[in-house]
Amino acid sequence: MGALKGKLAGKTALVTGGSRGIGRGIAERLGRDGARVAVHYGSNEAAAKETVAAIEAAGGEAFAIGQELGVPGDAAALWAAFDAHADGVDVLVNNAGIGTSQPFGSTEEAEYDRLFAVNTKAPYFLAQLGAERLRDGGRIVNISTGLSHAAMMPELTTYAMTKGALDVFTKYLAKVLGSRGITVNAVAPGIIDTDVNASWLRASDEAWAGAAAFSALGRVGEPGDVADVVAFLASHEGRWVTGQWIDATGGSLP
């Protein structure tokens, strides 16, 4: 029960894509800080339940909610599922996203639309419908990418564009909700060791070393590196930071 005495005691958080990778790291950290965490998943219910179990094992509270993003009515359906478990929210973390795309020359309209639907449109309407549920003094954290500020991987042009739009949304939403004491920020990871990246990142020692070389700190990032930044923004200590794009790439940008 120690976690319930943390900085977020009495708060409720929703983490989209909270079943795996960076999202799981964020969900577990907010749970350790005392928040009751809604762990959203798109399709992998088992992974979400594992995350919930991990949070509970650490003394926290959590529940899983499933909803595919990028489809009509996704935001309304997700919030309806949330409402069945909680009355209001204090922290919304828009983490769910599609992390791959085809190069510019071969991107088809369907893929372009899908990337924007999941990475940009869903967070927009989750925030819009969530605003009425978000308590004054609450927090919204959008998970962006270092690629929106540096053209380091041209093959991910479309993906970077979706996050660039999310960055602009972050700045404007901070102005819209600021009068209620709600902060809105974007956190931008670099290369993180998750199962999404495992196929290429762990393909060889050379691949791992090459990824580590991007960071000024000389290592590959871990989910906890990003989760700790989000936890700061979600806490009372982060109250005077809003409308910002936080570089959490480990010094990977030129």
Rank of each mutant, 00 (worst) to 15 (best):
S235D: 13
R135N: 13
G70T: 02
D167V: 11
D205M: 09
G146L: 13
V226P: 04
E237W: 05
P254Y: 07
L201H: 02
N95Q: 10
I65Y: 01
G250V: 10
E206S: 05
E56Y: 02
G2C: 12
G190M: 00
A64S: 08
F63K: 04
A53Q: 08
A62M: 10
N94K: 06
H236L: 15
A131W: 04
M152L: 15
G130T: 04
A117L: 00
V15C: 05
A117P: 01
A47T: 01
E237Y: 08
G18Y: 04
R219E: 06
L233N: 07
T249M: 09
T158I: 12
P189Y: 00
A198C: 05
S148R: 06
T249Q: 08
D87N: 10
T249D: 05
L156Q: 01
T100K: 00
T162E: 05
N185E: 09
L217I: 15
G17Y: 04
A234C: 14
F63C: 11
G59P: 04
I55N: 02
F214R: 11
N44V: 02
Y41Q: 03
E111F: 00
I55L: 05
L69E: 02
A46L: 07
E206L: 01
K5D: 14
A188S: 14
Q128K: 15
T157V: 07
A57H: 04
A234I: 12
A198K: 05
N44S: 12
L166V: 10
F232Q: 12
F63G: 07
V52R: 12
W208N: 00
D87I: 02
N94I: 09
A62K: 05
V241Q: 05
G73P: 04
N197A: 13
I143D: 09
K11P: 02
F63R: 03
L233W: 06
E132I: 10
P72K: 13
A203R: 05
E61R: 14
V37G: 11
A127S: 14
E111H: 02
R239Y: 00
R239K: 14
G59C: 07
T249C: 08
G221M: 08
T194P: 00
V226K: 06
G25M: 12
A122I: 01
R135A: 12
G17V: 08
A35M: 05
G10F: 10
L129K: 13
I246C: 06
V93K: 01
G164L: 04
D225F: 04
L129R: 12
K163M: 12
G10H: 07
A84H: 07
G6P: 02
K7N: 10
K175G: 09
Y172G: 14
A110F: 03
